[in-house]
Amino acid sequence: MNATAPNKDNPSAGGIEHRTVSRVMSILEVVIASEPNGLRLADLPDMLGAPKSSLHGLVRGLVANGYLRERHGRYYQGPATSLLALSGQRIPAALHHSLQTLANAWQETAILATLAGESVINIDKVESPQLVRASPPLHERRPMWPGSYGKVFLAFMSSARRDAYLRRKHKEPSTQRRILAELETIRTSGIAYNKAETVPDLYGIACPIRLGDGDVTLALGIAGPASRLEGRLEEVGQGVLEAARDLSTAVVEKQDD
């Protein structure tokens, strides 16, 4: 029997579960309301009427699943919160414009993806006008490895978080060494490739959108048939990298206004 399920021997268990849900939602509400300044963990007990010890684990869980993000000891809304009520109109115009520009320039599908916990989620796309093209689904969680976007997020993730992920998901030491070597190359170049590692005959190229000193949680990229991309990977990669850098600068400057 589940010890936390409400029953005659444990009449308060349901109340404990309800209290946990209430606290999680309250944390999200007060942190979102605090934007753009964010909140410290020390701010939460007084605001929510709960002890810091009971909130700390909940906050860590929300960060791990992408619903909050932490930067310099303050907590902010994470990318996964937008998935609770996401629509195309919620994507900032500058981001969608970059996708349109990339798709027009390379005649391939341009994609914007976010990191949510240990998952990659496509949140916007502009499809190629070509008859044969990549058409990835939106708003679905996908594993980080070996997708090009997941490679970007792993490459620019804190070493502690990255290593914890590898210990859980890729336990073979030889596999870990191979992944780490590729991630180091991505950190140096700023470009990640997926050469038909996820879907046969489909290539992906992704680059980070850098919005500060913390982990990268947004990436921009191109996907298309191997027959069209194989011979121009470096050229397209540099184009995506330039677009991602320009977009990073534009978004940061807007946040600073």
Rank of each mutant, 00 (worst) to 15 (best):
L39C: 10
I121E: 14
I186P: 12
R210Y: 00
G147D: 02
E29F: 14
A219M: 11
Q130K: 09
Q89L: 07
L95C: 14
V126T: 15
R232T: 05
D43L: 08
V132T: 09
R90N: 10
M25W: 13
I123Y: 05
A223Q: 12
E35V: 09
T20A: 10
S98K: 13
E29L: 15
A223I: 03
E230D: 15
E118R: 05
A3I: 14
M25T: 14
A93C: 12
V152P: 09
A42Q: 13
T20Y: 06
H96M: 06
L115E: 06
K169F: 05
R133W: 02
I91M: 09
A223N: 08
Y67P: 00
A33L: 11
E184N: 12
G66R: 08
T198V: 09
R74P: 00
V252Q: 08
R90V: 14
E127I: 09
F153C: 09
E253K: 04
V120R: 14
T217P: 00
R71Q: 00
Q238A: 12
E253I: 02
R210D: 03
S159L: 13
R232I: 07
L62P: 01
V126D: 10
D256S: 00
S128A: 10
A110C: 03
G221Y: 08
L247K: 09
S22C: 10
N37P: 03
M157R: 06
L154V: 04
G38N: 03
A5P: 07
P79C: 04
L55A: 08
R142Y: 10
N65Y: 06
L218Q: 09
I123F: 03
L83R: 01
P136T: 15
S119R: 14
P173K: 14
